[in-house]
Design a protein around this nucleic acid. Structure first.
Lengths: 208, 208
DNA sequence: GTCTATACACTGATAGAC
DNA sequence: GTCTATCAGTGTATAGAC
């Protein structure tokens, strides 16, 4: 019972910490806000997590993992290049628009030279490059060799795809205004459309 | 002489404020850092700009203006659609990679519900939509009608182009690791390549 | 206009009772 | 484990001398 409760409180704090860090970033987050949101006392934060820094590190690490796991998930499947692109784009856009705070948070924090970032990223990025990107890159090279798609630098292709999936989410407040005159009702539809629009766009761009 | 000096100090403070706000964001910026960087006393900040909020508002406003002016500049020119795309992409990528702090800062701050944002953006976004996007949209529609390019939703096309130009800059710390294994020497070359790569990519995607 | 000194609020963190 | 009380440090902002 005590163990269950302990786990419950710890998780509650962590969930609250994620919410607050997502919304406000490291500097903007207040320990008071986190404890309020978790429904416990401020001192308990320090009991479970030693300091704000430690807590942030754990939130950041967990978030990066989710971020990378999602990217890894689709690319590891075995399918044709065009299918892969369709599935990946659909999956990325779904994930990012369902969890819009994650890419905003990640972009904010990777552009701050935090110790958390330096420590964590090296291994994780290595993993992503070796285990996840490799099969996708091979698929691209094969299709170029077979003459199915134009010769294209895989780095630009991948960056292009990821850009078109992520940027609309983190740039929403601007794009919504410029494209929709702030008629917010259309946004979800627009994002839904993008799942097909982006995939088509990419395939048309590379298909011979 | 007094007037010149006043202007000089005021500008020095503003320049310092921009630097610090760019690097740290609103919450992370410290008045002490700004006054240090400006080479003057902390109290002077409040003499020229009433408060941190006021100072931030001015920095944010000025930055958004630069951001939008750059977007406006190329699209207002009179040229063919494909030329327009080439010039715009080249210009955006140059601007953003020369001023990498601006898109990072803008993304960070538009995703915070600051008063500065709400107050400022409505008019500026309206301007951008009416004066700048209109000619580009017309050019797209014309080329669809003439059968030069595939039928495509101009909103997705524009968002795609902007995404591919901006995201690599704000995602640099991640992309650099994933694509280059942190071999930082290649980054500038990669960005330089993108000026042509992205334009080609877009044109191939829409050309019939 | 520019400085020093200081007020005042708030933040992260700890001590100690229960 | 969880709370209250409290401390030391830092942040914005102001008062007042020059």
């Amino acid at each position: 019972m005590t163990d269950e409760q302990r786990l419950k409180t710890e998780e509650q704090i962590f969930a609250a910490a994620m919410e607050v860090f997502f919304e406000k970033g490291y500097y903007g987050a207040r320990m008071q806000d986190i404890s309020d949101k978790a429904g416990i006392n401020k001192a308990l934060l320090h009991y479970y997590y030693r300091s704000k820094d430690k807590m942030f590190e754990m939130v950041f690490s967990k978030t990066i993992d989710k971020f990378f796991e999602n990217m890894a998930f689709t690319l590891s499947k075995d399918m044709s290049l065009f299918e892969r692109i369709e599935v990946a784009v659909d999956n990325y856009i779904s994930f990012f628009s369902d969890n819009p705070h994650i890419p905003v948070f990640v972009v904010q924090e990777i552009n701050r030279d935090s110790e958390a970032f330096k420590k964590l990223m090296i291994d994780k990025i290595d993993m992503l490059r070796n285990n996840v990107m490799a099969p996708f890159v091979m698929s691209i090279q094969e299709n170029i060799a077979k003459g199915v798609i134009r010769p294209i630098d895989f780095r630009h292709l991948i960056v292009n795809i990821v850009s078109m999936c992520i940027f609309p989410v983190i740039g929403k407040p601007l794009i919504q205004g410029v494209v929709f005159a702030n008629n917010s009702g259309d946004w979800n539809l627009f994002i839904e459309e993008r799942k097909k629009a982006v995939a088509e766009f990419v395939i048309n761009a590379i298909k011979k």
